[in-house]
Each structure stands twice: as structure tokens, then as C-alpha cells.
């Protein structure tokens, strides 16, 4: 079975940049959660990671903004943030799988953007730091515009995820799919620090239960109400599209005010 691992996690920079600011119990539970994600990742022995994450003005700006972007480079550098607390490194890419993904997307009506150069920020480097700190597994990054209106719809993100899942099923490599971002947060904005735990827990429940109707019914206004960073959950919805109805379980959920984010983590029985 080519899909060997699926997980979703928040990628709040505070997890590494100002870890000590959070209460000890929350830090412990989140560290344990990352430990669980890593344990299962290592047991799954993936050959490649398809990483679904969000753009943070690192690669794109208002001069050219697309909905979806696939990296087809031989390698990537990151993180771009000197304050993140993660050492700069090079991560290998997988142009072959990336190109197959782009072709599959075009065949199915998703004309994704693509490029041979991409910088990685906390959205990729922070989850990788915990999942595969040696950075020994190559990566196919897929970026979602969670920033500049109009963001892609939940329905389209789910659809793109389905394309990815169907492609992965045809491949011979052992593939891990990891979605990163969210949950409720309003980073750098006036609502910074506000966390909507009800929104987060409802979303986690819908992801766990594969409630596709509910997940694809989220509207931009629903994410905006949970903070500008909640749009990043579009990558999680794409993950649900990729993995079908397989069961999911919540590994951790902590509303961490000093990190200004509802921190959620899930694994799925691949």
C-alpha cells in the first residue's frame, strides 16, 4: 500500500522559537504528541513525504499569488526565519513524484502552479524538525494560499487532495502525507492570542470522522472568524481528500495562549 503514513499538525513558530513561554504541562503534552507522530512515522518507513502546508509570504507576494503550488526542485533550503530556533538546512526534493503530481492535477482540472525553486519556512521546517530531524526523507512541498483573498475553497482543497491520494495509490514508493497549519489563531493581527477551542474541537471531530460534507462546507467566513491563520486548515481538508475515509485520531489538542494558537495533532491509520 503506497500510502504508509498520514498526519496533521499545527506549525506555530512558538513551539520552537519561544517554547518556554508555554505552561510546562502543555509543553509536555505537545512534546509527547510530536513523539507519537514521529514514532509512527519511523515505523511506517516512508520513502518520501508529500507536505501540504501554507504560504506565509515566503515564496509569494502580491505580485503573483496562486491558489496551489507544487515544488519540483532537487532540494530546498530553510528555514528562512533566523529567529525560529531551527538550524538552517537543506532538504532533498523528489522532482519525479512532484512532476507526476502536477500531471495528475492537470489531468483532473487543477492547474496548479509549480516551480524549481522554493524556500521553506516554519510551515515545513517545524514539523520536519519533529518528525524527521535528520531530514533524511525527500519532500514534495505543496503550498496553499491561506493568506491573500480569495483563498481557495475547502471544496477545491478537498478535491486536490483526492487527486493526490489517487496518484499516491498508483505509485510504488512508500508515501507519507503530512498536513500542517492552524488551528484557530490570528498571528500578528489584533486578535493575536485569541483561540477558539470550540471551533478547533469541532474541526478535529470532523477530520477524525471523515465528515466530508461538513469539511467541504467550511466557507472563508468560517475560517476568518477563527482568525486569519485558521485558513491554514485548508491543507488538513486536502489531507482528508487524499486519504479517503480511513479513521483518524486526535493525538493532542492544546490551546496554547503564549504561542497564540490552538495546537492540534492527528494521525490516521494508513
Amino acid at each position: 500500500m503506497p500510502l504508509v503514513y498520514a498526519a496533521a499538525t499545527s506549525h506555530a513558530p512558538g513551539i520552537t522559537a519561544w517554547n518556554d513561554a508555554a505552561p510546562a504541562q502543555q509543553r509536555e503534552r505537545i512534546a509527547t504528541g510530536f513523539g507519537t507522530l514521529r514514532e509512527r512515522f519511523e515505523a511506517a518507513r516512508p520513502d518520501v513525504i508529500v507536505l501540504l502546508t501554507s504560504e506565509h509570504w515566503t515564496n509569494f507576494f502580491l505580485d503573483h499569488m496562486g491558489a496551489f503550488f507544487v515544488g519540483r526542485a532537487e532540494s530546498y533550503r530553510g528555514p528562512v526565519e533566523p529567529w525560529l530556533g531551527i538550524a538552517p538546512a537543506v532538504v532533498r526534493g523528489n522532482p519525479d513524484l512532484a512532476t507526476a503530481l502536477i500531471d495528475a492535477a492537470y489531468d483532473d482540472g487543477f492547474e496548479v502552479s509549480f516551480g524549481y525553486e522554493l524556500q521553506l519556512d516554519h510551515g515545513a521546517m517545524l514539523p520536519l524538525h519533529f518528525l524527521v530531524p535528520e531530514l533524511k526523507i525527500p519532500l514534495v512541498p505543496v503550498l496553499f494560499n491561506a493568506l491573500a483573498a480569495p483563498q481557495p475553497s475547502a471544496r477545491r482543497c478537498y478535491g486536490l487532495g483526492r487527486v493526490i491520494g489517487e496518484l499516491v495509490a498508483r505509485r510504488s514508493e512508500r508515501v507519507a502525507i503530512v498536513a500542517t497549519g492552524g488551528m484557530s489563531h490570528d498571528p500578528g493581527e489584533r486578535g493575536h492570542g485569541r483561540i477558539d477551542s470550540d471551533f478547533d474541537r469541532t474541526f478535529l471531530g470532523r477530520m477524525a470522522a471523515a465528515d466530508v460534507t461538513a469539511l467541504t462546507s467550511y466557507r472563508n467566513a468560517d475560517f476568518a472568524a477563527a482568525g486569519s491563520g485558521a485558513y491554514e486548515l485548508l491543507a488538513w481538508i486536502a489531507l482528508r481528500g487524499a486519504i479517503g475515509a480511513i479513521a483518524g485520531s486526535v493525538v493532542a489538542y492544546e490551546p496554547v495562549v503564549p504561542w497564540a494558537t490552538g495546537i492540534g495533532m492527528m494521525t490516521f491509520a494508513a
Binding site: 506565509h56 509570504w57 526565519e81 529567529w83 493568506l147 490570528d186 498571528p187 500578528g188 493581527e189 493575536h192 486569519s228
Partner: peptide, 8 residues
């Protein structure tokens, strides 16, 4: 200026 440009 967007929060994810200004805060960094």
C-alpha cells in the same frame, strides 16, 4: 502591513 509581514 499584514501581520505575517509586520510581526516577523
Amino acid at each position: 502591513v499584514h501581520g505575517l509581514i509586520l510581526r516577523p
